[in-house]
Design a protein around this nucleic acid. Sequence first.
DNA 1: GTCTATAGTAAGATAGAC
DNA 2: GTCTATCTTACTATAGAC
Lengths: 189, 189
Amino acid sequence: MARTKRIDDDTLMTKLTQTFRDYGYEGASLNILSKATGLQKASLYHRFPGGKEEMALEVLNRAGNWVGENIVAPLTTDISPEKKIKIMSKKLDEFYTGGNNSCLLNMLASPEMVKGPFTSHIKEAFEVWIKTLSNVLVESGLSRKESRKRAENAIAMLQGSLVMSRGMNDPKLFKSFLKNLPNMLLDNK
Amino acid sequence: MARTKRIDDDTLMTKLTQTFRDYGYEGASLNILSKATGLQKASLYHRFPGGKEEMALEVLNRAGNWVGENIVAPLTTDISPEKKIKIMSKKLDEFYTGGNNSCLLNMLASPEMVKGPFTSHIKEAFEVWIKTLSNVLVESGLSRKESRKRAENAIAMLQGSLVMSRGMNDPKLFKSFLKNLPNMLLDNK
DNA sequence: GTCTATAGTAAGATAGAC
DNA sequence: GTCTATCTTACTATAGAC
């Protein structure tokens, strides 16, 4: 034995993701990651030869894929903009577990001066997200400029509501954001 | 000599603040703090016997005082709500150096599960901020409920725009937020 | 008040047995 | 594939000279 995995890849990635979200990159020590996954450090290195950096990169990629499949993809189908926004809200609620989870794009962001290994991934994630959402709003009849602005504001509000929910230890601001999201995006001005 | 300070208290605190903003609590090692301030580690311990935790706590307190004097105080004077918001915008621009600095309330926030030494300070800072800003909006003629909501949204948008400015390495979202802030707060709906 | 030197601990990472 | 044991480095923190 011991040739069989104590924890399957998907569950492992979920645990790692949770830990990086809770502790950030620096705060998530290998000891903490080990306890969170039930694997010893050496076992983690066996699965991620690149160590913590590789773990965080794969976590970031997996989150990107999840967002692509669950949030971006529905936004590019043939249903109405209203329905798209509704689906997105539901998926965001799931993704951030009702405001109790921080966003990796915030928790893994590096100091500006020292460009870290995640900088480009995070920047691209934000840009893709803004563009995709913006396209939906154009489709709903808004101008390109107004659509871009609303998309940026919505994502900023999402990030801010998560920061405040964490800081105040109360997810109500995130929930309130989600509730207002459709209006924020689609209301005629 | 060496009985005279290499760096005065205020400049020292400014450097420490900058470092915690850039690196976060875990990321700001004593080596980094030492280089940033020009003081050796032992000298830092002489000034802050409680070590890094005391440094961060004092940084947080000082930032709270600055906000109290420069942002909260003007909000409670006798000038018009419009002028108050204008002053606040200007001071926020200064405080966050045009969107190039992160917010300590985000960078020092601890993981929810492990209540850190800053949790209560951060929570209180958000609450005071929301209440003070909300009162200004009540004064401008909005209902208590609407005022509270707008204040929360404005601060969330501020936090989010900072997160995104850092993540995208471009302060334009913060600048855009600042520009729209008066409308966001005072527009009749 | 600041420094060099160093203790003690925890970090990231690897070797080799099973 | 997982483990214990270990290495090396970096970290927080302290001692003691000037």
